[in-house]
Design a protein around this nucleic acid. Sequence first.
DNA 1: TATCGCAGATTAATCGTTTAATCACCCGAT
DNA 2: ATCGGGTGATTAAACGATTAATCTGCGATA
Lengths: 352, 352
Amino acid sequence: MARSGPKLTRIATTLGVSAATVSNALSGKGRVSAELAEKIRSVAAEIGYVPSQAGRALRTGKSAVIGLVLPDISNPLFPQIAQAIEFAASSAGYGVLIADSRGDVAVQTSAIERLIERGVDGMVIVPRRGTRIADVGCPVAVVDTPSTPGNTVAADHWDGGRQIAEHLVGLGHRRLLIIGNNPASNVQNDRIGGLRSAMREGVQAETLWIERLELLHGKGCSLGLAGKVAEGVTAFAAVSDLQALRALTELQRAGIHVPEQASVTGFDDLIWSPVVTPALTTIRMDMARIATLAVEALVQAIGASAAESPSDGTPVAATISKVPMQLVVRQSTARPPSNVQPLNVSEGEPQP
Amino acid sequence: MARSGPKLTRIATTLGVSAATVSNALSGKGRVSAELAEKIRSVAAEIGYVPSQAGRALRTGKSAVIGLVLPDISNPLFPQIAQAIEFAASSAGYGVLIADSRGDVAVQTSAIERLIERGVDGMVIVPRRGTRIADVGCPVAVVDTPSTPGNTVAADHWDGGRQIAEHLVGLGHRRLLIIGNNPASNVQNDRIGGLRSAMREGVQAETLWIERLELLHGKGCSLGLAGKVAEGVTAFAAVSDLQALRALTELQRAGIHVPEQASVTGFDDLIWSPVVTPALTTIRMDMARIATLAVEALVQAIGASAAESPSDGTPVAATISKVPMQLVVRQSTARPPSNVQPLNVSEGEPQP
DNA sequence: TATCGCAGATTAATCGTTTAATCACCCGAT
DNA sequence: ATCGGGTGATTAAACGATTAATCTGCGATA
C-alpha cells in the first residue's frame, strides 16, 4: 500500500471525539454540529488524511473502480477512448482498471473475469467486432454502434457516413469506392450504410474489403486503387483513417495527385490525419461526450443495483445513446477533375 | 461490488472447519493436511469462491494494483505500452489502473495523487518529456530512456538511432536530414545522438525540429523537404513514425519518389508503418520485454518496501535497464539515386 | 414534576481476510 | 510414566471505515 496514511481514528483521538463522528462529519451524513464538523475537516486537511479505499470498499461493498475492456488496445482509436473514459470516470470519482482482450474472444472473457475478481463496480466494454457481451455479474455499458442490440452509447456512425457521402457528392463526385476492412464489424457496416444512404441517383459506389483482398494476395498487398481511378472512380471513402492513409499513400505512390485527381476520406480523425500531406478530410466522434454518457449511465446503474435489486442480473445500462459525429474537411477532398465524366449520368451538376 | 461471491466462512462451515484453515489451505501457508487442503480446494472451486480483494487489501495492506501514468494517452505509442504493461502486470497478478496526464505537468501530479489515494502498490510512469518524477510515496518504475537519471528500463534509443544510421549509410547515403519534433525530449535526443554517432567521415546530417518550424509557420506547415532533396539530401531520418509519415507524404505530394529518389525512416513501428505505400523502414522497441522488466522490478520493490523499510521513501526501482531495438527494413529505404553525388566526399563507397 | 422530543455525540457490530498465538494430540525417547 | 517435539487445526485479534442502534442532556410541554 502506498499510503503512509494516518487513520480515521487518529484524527478522532486528536480531537477527543469518536471515530464515528469523524466519519459522519467528513461524509456529511450523520448529525454533527457545524462547529465540530468544521474542526474535524480542518484537522483532517492538516494531517493530510486520506481515507483507505480498502476499508471503505470492505464496508460498503463498492470499490469505486470501473473496468475498461477493449477489443484490442493496439487499436489506434484506443487512446482517444481510454483518455475520455478515464477523464469521465475520475470526474465521477471512479478509477479505471484496464483490461486488454488482445483481439481474442477467449481472452476478452478472461479479462472480464479478472475485472470482476478485482471487484469493479461496473465496466465499460468496447466489444470486439461482432461479439455479444455475455452475462457478467455487474452493470455494463457497451460502446459499439447504435444499431447493435444492447448498445449503451455510441457515435452515430451511420450519420457520419451520410455526412461524408454528402460532402463528396456535393463536391461533384459520382463514382466512389468505399474501402472497408472487415465485413463482420457492426461499426463498419453502419458507416457504409450511411455512406450509401446519401447516394442519390446517378452516383455509383462499390465496396472493397481489405481483409478479403489480403487473404488472396497477402498482407500489405496493393489495393489496385490506380486501376480504379483509371476506371473512373474519383473518390475513395475509407471506413477508418488507417485505411484512408493506406489509400492515400498508394495513390500518391502511383503518381495520382490527391485531391486533384482523386479525393480520399477517412473516419475517426486519428492522430496522423492532420499531419499527412494532404491533410485528411475525415469525421470525428465526440469521444468526450460518449464517455461521459457511458460513465453516467454506468454510475446510475451501479447506484440502482446497490439500492433496489439485491441480485444485479446482467443489466446493460441504457441512455440517449446516439452522439453525432463531426465532419472535418481538410485537404484530401476537392471537386473531381473536370475531364472525368460520370459514366451513366442521369442528372449531373454542372462541372466547374 | 460486482462479486456475488460466497465468503470464505461459508466454505469453512460447509466442511466444518475454521475459516483460518481454509485461508491457509488456499494460500498454502499454514499447516494443513494434504487431504483437507484438497477437499477445501475442491469445495472452493465448486461454489466458485472468489476472494474479496477488499478484505485482503485491508488486512495485508497491499492492493495488488499498480498505476500506469502516461504523459499523454493520445500518444500513438501508448497502445503498445499499455498493452504490454497490462499483460506483464496481470501475469504477475496485478491489476492496472490508468491515469492520463493529458500532457500537462500539473495534471500529471494530480493523476499520481489520485493513484496513491486509490492505494496502488506501485506505479509505472512514462514521464512527459523533460519531467522529473517527484517524490511519490510508493515504488515507482520509470520508463524513459537509459540516459535519463532515475530511469528504470527503456529501449536503447541511442543504439536504435545508430542502427538506422548504419543502415542508411550502408546503403550509400551521404547527406541526411534528421527530423525531430521537440528538442526537450530525452528520448528524441538520444535517438538523434545515436544517429549522429554512426556518421562516419563524409556523411553530413542536419537536424530539423518540427515544433520550431510550426511556431513560425503554423501547425501543419510544409517542412520544405522537396527543397532539401534539391539541395542533395537523399535520406530523411525521422525520430518517430509520425514524423516519418509526415515526411513521406510531403515528399510524395511533391512528386518525389520514395525510396527511388529519397529514403525515409521512422521510429517505433507504429500501427500504420506496414500499411502505407511504401511501407516504412523503422525500428521497433521490444515493449513486451520492457514492460516485463519494469513490472518485475516494481513487484520486487513492492515486496522489499513491505518487508524491510517501514517507510518506503521514494525508491525508484532499478534493473538491467537497456533493451535493444530491432531494425525493421521495409520499402521506404533504398540506395540513393546514382546521379546524386555527395558534396564533399573524402571516402565514398562505390556507387552502383 | 414527570415526560416527551430531539440534537449531538458514542457504542458496537460488521465487511472478509490474514496470521500470530494457542491448543490438542499422538509418538518416540528418556 | 513423563517430557519434548511435531503435526494439524482452532482462536482471536487485527486491518480501516461505515452505520444502525443507543445514550445523554436539555428545553419545552402536559
